[in-house]
Computed example of a mutant assay.
Amino acid sequence: MPLTPVEPVRDEAQEIVQQLKAALAAHGIVLPSLNVDLPSFAHLTGEALIELGRVNQETARALIALATREGPRT
């Protein structure tokens, strides 16, 4: 697998994290550990992982409610 420059991958991953934080915040959901998984950059495969982290039961229920609402899927 060819190596990929880190900066564009990192920048895209950080933008995704910010968009996800904003989308969840609009529903009153905060994932304190939501961030880019820095060790995933070590592989330089062209894709970074997003760390969602651990949440309490209340947040998990809020995520379930949001994820099971009827609406468009992309």
Rank of each mutant, 00 (worst) to 15 (best):
T74A: 15
L20V: 14
M1S: 03
N56V: 09
Q57M: 02
G53R: 02
A60S: 13
L34H: 12
P72S: 07
I50G: 02
G53H: 06
P32D: 02
V36C: 15
L66T: 01
A62T: 07
L66K: 06
L34A: 14
I16L: 14
I29G: 05
R61L: 12
R54F: 15
T68F: 14
A65S: 12
V6S: 12
T45W: 09
L66F: 08
E51K: 11
H43E: 01
L38P: 08
E7H: 09
E70Y: 04
L20C: 13
Q14W: 08
T59K: 10
R61N: 11
V55F: 13
V36T: 14
A26L: 08
V17Y: 09
F41Y: 08
R73W: 11
V36R: 15
V55R: 02
I50F: 08
Q19L: 15
G71A: 14
A42C: 04
A23E: 10
L20I: 13
A60I: 01
E70P: 00
G71P: 13
A13D: 02
L52T: 06
S33K: 04
R69I: 00
E47V: 04
L49R: 13
V17F: 06
H43Q: 05
V36M: 15
S40F: 03
T59S: 10
T68N: 07
F41H: 07
R61C: 05
A42L: 08
A23N: 10
L52D: 00
R69M: 05
Q18L: 05
N56M: 06
E70D: 07
A13K: 01
E51Q: 12
N56F: 05
I29A: 06
V6N: 08
L66S: 06
L44Y: 07
P2S: 12
I50H: 07
E12S: 14
P2H: 12
S40C: 00
N35I: 00
L31W: 01
A60Q: 13
L52F: 12
G28E: 03
A42D: 10
N35M: 03
D37V: 00
A22D: 09
P72C: 02
G46K: 13
P72V: 02
A26T: 01
A26S: 07
E12D: 14
E47T: 02
G28D: 03
P39K: 01
H27F: 07
I29N: 05
A65V: 04
L3Y: 12
L44D: 05
L24M: 01
V9K: 01
A13P: 00
E7T: 05
E70L: 09
V17R: 06
I50W: 07
L63N: 11
L24D: 00
L34R: 11
V6F: 09
A23G: 10
G71C: 14
E7Y: 11
E58W: 03
L24T: 01
G28C: 04
R54P: 00
V36N: 14
R69L: 06
E47F: 12
L3I: 01
A13H: 02
Q19T: 14
E12F: 15
G71E: 11
P32L: 00
I16H: 13
T74K: 13
R61A: 10
F41A: 02
D11L: 15
A26F: 08
L52H: 04
P2W: 07
G71T: 11
V36E: 15
A23Y: 11
A13V: 10
K21W: 12
